[in-house]
Design a protein around this nucleic acid. Structure first.
Lengths: 193, 193
DNA sequence: AATATAACTGGACGGTGTACAGTTGCCAAC
DNA sequence: GTTGGCAACTGTACACCGTCCAGTTATATT
């Protein structure tokens, strides 16, 4: 029995509450389970009620996606070796993405999400690249290449897999690590002419 | 005036005709224009008529996506420098993907598409990597890294862009090229120890 | 105390992919 | 050459989707 509420009656909805419900749905049943209507139902509310707290589904997704990045472990700021710190940071990013496989395509589609968490991680990465003696003019490209590698590898690691070869997670992680090492090796080599 | 046809009357549909119509729609209005209903309308046919020639929309998309890869220029088999050939191949792939920006996320979601064209290009790439003295055990990883870089860079090059900075195409291409050079440099360096 | 605003409900619009039940054209077998 | 049977269709419908519009009412503002 769907709890009804007379028109005009308030439900005490807030934007954080809406986002929280969306995150729950996402954690439970993946991105397929996440619809405006499902979020509304979970909150005991009419679907369009959400539009008082969120402009549209895209914005909601933006927020939820950026929230996932909270799980990424920031590197030790006192770390001596910047290259090792970069490796750790990107590996953590990769792990988090693989853990939320079904929304990796969404990350790609919106270029890695553009919330506060994403920009924060981007800044950290830029700083580390600077410490690694990457020339300022190439830092943007380097960051982009690293992020592309992490998200792209995560997409390939999950995906539908092949019918015959499901692509074992261990192997996918190894391929990510290898590619990352090549990228960093080439980066170091290119700047150290 | 939607041409009607009595039930039981044939329209002379074929699977290639359906795919061709889908490709046309895609070329005209992007992936948004491509729906079962739009394809059916273009063929003067009821929507569900398509299901006699295509199992579902996913399969249709698979076919159309792989068809796009026909535009990728295969490298000169007589090329002397394998690294240069790889660069040419990946750059062409990147260009084609950027030209079909809206379906790049689809490529990612299904791990680069798995049609005959995709596998053919994969084989060519593998062969070039072998000629570049990449050890057999690492060829798969190298191929994956290169493909991830191409598709991922294309995704970032297109996308919604930022509201403030639309990301000029020229700059995006430069970032792709730079990243590619790092990848190949690191690859060469790692194998030549 | 009156008024404006914001939070909701009910209902609807236009869209999606696809399943089910029919009608009929065509091809193969007798 | 007639007869089955299969496959290609149409019509209809289901279950969704995101989102807009017009109301109703609780709350904040004056």
């Amino acid at each position: 029995m769907p709890q009804t509420r007379a028109p005009g009656k308030r439900a005490g909805l807030t934007r954080p509450a809406v986002l929280a419900a969306a995150r729950e749905l996402l954690a439970e049943g993946g991105v397929d389970r996440l619809s405006m209507r499902s979020v509304a139902q979970r909150l005991g509310v009419a679907p369009n009620a959400l539009y008082s707290h969120v402009p549209n589904k895209t914005a909601l997704l933006d927020d939820v996606l950026d929230d996932v990045l909270t799980e990424v472990l920031p590197p030790d700021p006192a770390a001596s070796d910047p290259l090792a710190a970069i490796t750790a940071l990107m590996t953590s990013t990769y792990d988090v993405l693989v853990a939320h496989a079904d929304l990796v395509p969404l990350f790609l589609a919106r270029q890695g999400a553009r919330g506060p968490n994403a920009t924060r991680l981007g800044d950290v990465l830029d700083h580390l690249l600077g410490r690694a003696a990457v020339p300022a003019a190439e830092i943007t490209s380097a960051r982009r290449a690293l992020i592309v590698h992490a998200i792209g590898s995560a997409a390939f690691a999950s995906g539908p897999g092949e019918a015959d070869r499901p692509i074992p997670a261990r192997e996918a992680a190894r391929q990510f690590t290898l590619g990352l090492s090549w990228l960093l090796l080439g980066l170091a080599q290119a700047t150290r002419v």
